[in-house]
């Protein structure tokens, strides 16, 4: 396990793990490890929010515990659940001899507890990185529960009592801004806004993911992508699209992005019908014939 000593440590650590952080990303990640506060990471789709958590875990030498949020996610799926089948089985086999009452004390022991990501992160012997992905998909009630957890780092289970954190997780929450999160939750967190990267950094990222792509093509790719992002599209291309495009160009053995290559491959970076038209009209024509 690693305890970073400076922001620069985090920068190089993430880089070594294959994630190229921007200035604020490295700084906030470092603060998270020092201050023990959760980080709320927001930004457009595909800018590396999820990836940051994975790579931070890798760099810190911690396990990643991931809670993927979705509409209707409840405590049973996020915190813990009693293993009903197993409990029933025990009752069936033992209630005959020992009596119902005796079995009941038995079946609410840790053995019958199914721990879900949040409990898992809290109870872990080794400190973990806890990723609560797409928190904006849940409801406010769930958020309130989470807030309590993130404030006290303990969970109380009526039948078992209180389970306190043995180790402090580094917590990252991501959101795509589909709804406003509560002030209380934000207050508890450090805030990191992840945006599209600068062209320089994006070039490095593309080179990292598609090292065999000729440098000139990669540079051109980044320039074209930044041009495309300037157009008010429904869904501007993200880093993920840049990487996909780079790989496709590599497969095609492209030596340049000319009009034809662009026409044939642009559906990799823009998906919407109307976006495609806009991009063809505004960017395609500007490339070499």
């Amino acid at each position: 396990m690693i305890v970073p000593g400076s922001v620069d440590d985090v920068t190089s650590g993430l880089q070594a793990a294959g994630y190229l952080p921007g200035e604020s990303t490295a700084l906030v990640s470092y603060l998270a490890t020092r201050l023990g506060k959760p980080v709320l990471v927001e930004g457009p789709a595909g800018v590396g929010k999820t990836e940051l958590a994975k790579k931070l875990a890798e760099y810190l030498g911690r396990d990643l515990v991931r809670l993927q949020c979705y509409e209707g996610l409840d405590e049973a799926k996020a915190l813990y659940e009693w293993n009903y089948r197993k409990q029933l089985l025990r009752i069936q086999t033992e209630a005959e001899d020992a009596g119902w009452q005796a079995v009941q004390d038995d079946i609410f022991g840790e053995e019958f507890l199914l721990s879900r990501p949040l409990l898992q992160a809290i109870a872990s012997e080794e400190p973990v990185v806890l990723l609560i992905d797409e928190i904006d998909k849940t409801d406010q009630e769930f958020e309130a529960m989470l807030l309590e957890l993130l404030s006290d780092f303990q969970i109380s289970i009526p039948e078992l009592g209180r389970i306190e954190a043995k180790t402090m997780p580094v917590v990252l929450l991501t959101s795509n801004n589909s709804r406003e999160l509560t002030e209380a939750l934000k207050r508890r967190c450090l805030y990191l806004w992840l945006d599209y990267p600068t062209p320089e950094r994006e070039l490095e990222i593309v080179r990292l993911h598609a090292p065999e792509l000729p440098e000139t093509v990669a540079a051109r790719l980044v320039e074209v992508v930044s041009m495309v992002r300037e157009l008010d599209l429904k869904k501007p291309p993200s880093i993920a699209e840049s990487i996909d495009w780079a790989r496709a160009l590599l497969l095609l053995g492209a030596e340049d992005i000319d009009q034809q290559t662009f026409r044939e491959t642009m559906s990799i970076i823009v998906k919407h019908r109307t976006d495609l038209d806009t991009v063809a009209e505004r960017v395609g024509v500007r490339l070499a014939a």
Binding site: V7, E23, S24, L27, V28, L31, L40, E42, K186, R187, C189, L190, Y191, L192, W193
Partner: peptide, 18 residues
């Protein structure tokens, strides 16, 4: 850089606030 970003991470918690 770090001065501004450290303050931003703790004081400005939405794109609007930023």
């Amino acid at each position: 850089g770090p001065f501004r970003e450290a303050l931003a991470a703790t004081l400005a918690k939405s794109p609007d606030d930023r």
